[in-house]
Computed example of a mutant assay.
Amino acid sequence: MKQHAKLHDLLPASARGHVEDLIRFEAETYAKAMMRKGKRKVNGGNVAAFVFVALVTGGVVYGFIALALVWPLFFIGAAIAVGFGGLFLVVGGGQLFDYEADPDVAATADRRQEEISSTTADGTDRIS
């Protein structure tokens, strides 16, 4: 946004219209993203699952490392456990919050569902 504002200042007055539209769009998108982020709520069940996976992964890795002190081949098992546990945590990290439904998205989905339900399997419109 800052770069576009600087570009806006450098352009002649006759060419500023589109850049103003772009800046306005970016500001609106940023504001919506910040409002959405402010309205999110922590999902307790997902946080509990996240902590559970972290504890199980830690326990398994601890066991593998303890065994690896006796037989070094168990370091491979520890690495695999860290990999899988880490992947589960990375993937699950995005699910820790619940967001309010966006009314624009919900309205579009409802309209699309109405369009789908008003046609038959062969693609022709139903007669009411």
Rank of each mutant, 00 (worst) to 15 (best):
T57H: 04
L22A: 08
K39E: 14
K2Y: 13
R36D: 11
H8A: 12
A49I: 12
T124H: 08
H4T: 08
G94W: 10
D104T: 08
L7E: 09
K2F: 11
E20A: 07
N43E: 09
L73A: 15
F88P: 04
K6I: 12
A68D: 02
K41D: 09
G83N: 10
G59M: 08
V91I: 14
G85M: 03
D104N: 11
T57V: 05
N46F: 09
E115S: 11
K32A: 11
Y62V: 00
E26M: 13
L11P: 04
G59I: 03
H18V: 14
F25I: 09
V19H: 04
A27Q: 12
R112K: 15
I80G: 02
L89V: 06
A107S: 12
N46P: 00
T108F: 09
F88R: 08
L55Y: 06
Y62A: 13
L89G: 06
A121T: 02
S117F: 11
Y62F: 13
L73G: 14
T119S: 12
F88I: 06
V105C: 08
M34S: 09
A109K: 15
G92R: 04
L67A: 11
I23P: 06
A48D: 15
K41M: 05
E20S: 05
F25T: 13
R112H: 14
I65C: 07
A13F: 03
P72V: 10
P72T: 04
L55C: 05
V82A: 15
M34F: 08
L22C: 07
G94Q: 01
F97G: 00
A66E: 05
V53N: 06
R111P: 04
V105K: 05
M1H: 13
K6N: 14
F50K: 00
L69P: 00
Y62E: 12
N43C: 04
G17S: 10
T120A: 15
A107R: 10
D98Q: 05
P72I: 07
F50N: 03
G94R: 02
F74V: 04
H18R: 15
H8P: 04
R40K: 07
G44N: 11
D102Q: 02
T57D: 00
Q113T: 09
A101E: 14
K41S: 11
F97V: 04
G44Y: 07
V19G: 05
V61N: 01
V19Y: 07
F52Q: 06
V105F: 07
L55D: 05
A106H: 03
I116D: 00
V19T: 06
R36P: 00
I80N: 01
I116A: 01
I127S: 07
D102G: 02
L69C: 04
Q95H: 14
P12V: 15
V90M: 07
G93H: 04
L22I: 09
D98G: 02
R40D: 06
L73R: 05
K39G: 13
L11Q: 11
A66Q: 09
A33E: 13
R40G: 02
D104V: 10
R40C: 02
